[in-house]
Write a protein that binds this DNA or RNA. Structure first.
Lengths: 147, 147
DNA sequence: CTCAAATCGGACTGATTCGTTCCGATTGCC
DNA sequence: GGCAATCGGAACGAATCAGTCCGATTTGAG
């Protein structure tokens, strides 16, 4: 009942990225240097080891939460406004779907225990509650703006 | 963001135990044979491997959720009524305190990242929400009585 | 009172997953 | 066209977890 270290790091990193993103959309050609972020910058700011930060950038980019551009002067930026990215999105991007039990993932994955499992429907409800709690916190609220 | 297999098994096992416990307190000398439960019985009923069931019995007993008596004719019984045992109790008994992040466990366990972590207070709130969702489901509701 | 059976309790082994690190592919600037 | 800096994926080591086994303890019968 504890999220993995990578997910924890990802949340901290995305919060830092949202903080640098400022109030604007995150990409304006004029002051691009100010919002320029990359794995090295985020690593130095958050204290996360650089290789780990790179790995997280890869996963978050593959999940569509950030957009990355390669090459010299490249970097990353949030794909959506901070208010539209929740903890559930970040956690699911790093460690897969949020599901308390394996049977609550694909929908009809029999666990093999008990012909008529009476625990599963309640587990689905619990999963929904947990997911709702995580979806209710956005990066905007983590950046300290909308306390 | 998924509870361990042992915790899942423990929930199923405790639900089965609560079902056999019936509506009464769970221990009456006259019909003791009816509510007699042990690791072997629960294993056969739930499909959980016997050694694993034994391990779970040990942990649940150490946590004070069930009371065990050794020797011939011994067995286990719930220490409290099913309505007074929640999923949070069972999960904490098996896999330790419920805490999303390591810093939310002892209270002041600095993670070393960022001097002023602005994510932690929100993580505490999320941890509370998850814990509340798990504490809201009791063994009585899992047994199908109080739907 | 002695013996024997049955149970819980703790310790060990193997495996899977997680976290970390390193190296290659790709792109923009000079 | 060459160079430098960046992301992307692959490989290694470590830790935790799931599962299994055997010993300590207690009760019941003879």
């Amino acid at each position: 009942m504890r999220l993995s270290s990578l997910a924890d790091y990802a949340v901290v990193m995305m919060a830092a990225a949202a903080r640098h993103c400022g109030a604007g959309a995150g990409l304006d050609p004029a002051t691009r240097k100010h919002v320029k972020m990359n794995a090295t910058t985020l690593s130095a700011e958050t204290g996360i080891p650089l290789p780990t930060a790179q790995k997280l950038v890869s996963r978050l980019s593959a999940a569509g939460l950030i957009e990355s551009s390669r090459g010299t002067g490249g970097g990353i930026r949030l794909a959506r406004p901070p208010a539209a990215i929740s903890l559930a999105d970040v956690i699911e991007a790093v460690e897969g779907p949020i599901a308390m039990t394996p049977c609550a993932e694909h929908g009809a994955h029999d666990c093999g225990l008990e012909d008529e499992c009476r625990v599963r429907p309640h587990m689905n409800a619990v999963t929904g509650a947990v997911r709702g709690a995580l979806a209710g916190v956005t990066l905007a609220s983590l950046s300290g703006r909308a306390h």
